[in-house]
């Protein structure tokens, strides 16, 4: 059985599920389990459509990027804030804290060590949140295909809205990816947050399958 087929079939009752609303946080030491929230992410319903359209317009024109470079492709993010490409004219800016960011740019290959931080940062971002995967390595493993220490497809671990191919993509390509993301947001199609909540068990099973030293809460509020 291939890797992907195995990932499609999580165990019937994984050890991190207490009941349908709460998680166990069982990987943490018992004295630390009280420190963290044990609630699952829940699906958030949309508002009244006219209001939602206006909110989506505001979300699309105020994309705050989490400044967390996960791989070599992150070097392509730096030119974007310089005078030559200047993403601030599109209402975008770098935000150094996941709490305030709304776009997570996966910049290239993701090692297992980084994946843990990516999951943690992604879950700490407040919804609606969007993910742009830049570079081949984040899409299909790229030159790290079959590596013992990197994952192949980031969208098995967190939901991805837009892919930008290339090794590496030029800043123009990344900008085009952001423009596509803006279009998706305005059309109401960038619902990664709800997808993550709906398929939480599947994502969590995939994450736990590769991250062996899981020493954080099951869902990082």
């Amino acid at each position: 059985m291939s890797d992907i087929e195995q990932k499609d079939k999580p165990a019937t009752q994984p050890e991190w599920v207490k009941d349908e609303r709460t998680l166990t946080n069982s990987a943490l030491p018992s004295e630390e389990q009280d420190w963290f929230c044990d609630a699952r992410p829940r699906r958030v319903e949309k508002h009244w459509q006219v209001l939602e359209n206006f909110m989506n317009w505001a979300r699309a024109h105020s994309l705050w990027i989490l400044a967390f470079g996960t791989g070599c492709g992150a070097i392509e993010m730096r030119p974007l804030v310089t005078a030559r490409y200047d993403i601030s004219r599109l209402g975008m800016q770098m935000r150094p804290t996941p709490r305030q960011a709304s776009v997570f740019v996966i910049g290239g290959y993701v090692s297992l060590k980084t994946l843990k931080r990516i999951v943690r940062s992604y879950e700490q971002m407040q919804g609606p949140k969007f993910v742009v995967a830049v570079c081949s390595c984040a899409i299909n493993g790229g030159m790290y295909w079959d590596s013992y220490n990197t994952i192949k497809r980031i969208d098995e671990y967190i939901p991805v809205d837009v892919y930008v191919t290339g090794c590496m993509p030029r800043p123009e390509a990344v900008l085009a990816g952001f423009n596509l993301l803006k279009k998706l947001i305005r059309e109401g199609k960038a619902e990664g947050q709800n997808l993550y909540a709906d398929k939480f068990d599947w994502y969590k099973a995939n994450q736990k399958q590769v991250i062996k030293d899981w020493n954080m809460p099951d869902y990082n509020w």
């Binding site: 505001a58 200047d86 601030s88 004219r89 407040q126 919804g127 609606p128």
Partner: peptide
């Protein structure tokens, strides 16, 4: 932005940011 040779965000960007922050679904 102009001092740094960039175009810079539109003048109404602070308003959009406030709308966006209030339109977040979780807190």
């Amino acid at each position: 932005a102009r001092v740094q040779g960039r175009l810079g965000p539109p003048v109404w960007q602070p308003f959009i940011d406030i709308f966006k922050n209030n339109a977040k679904r979780t807190a």
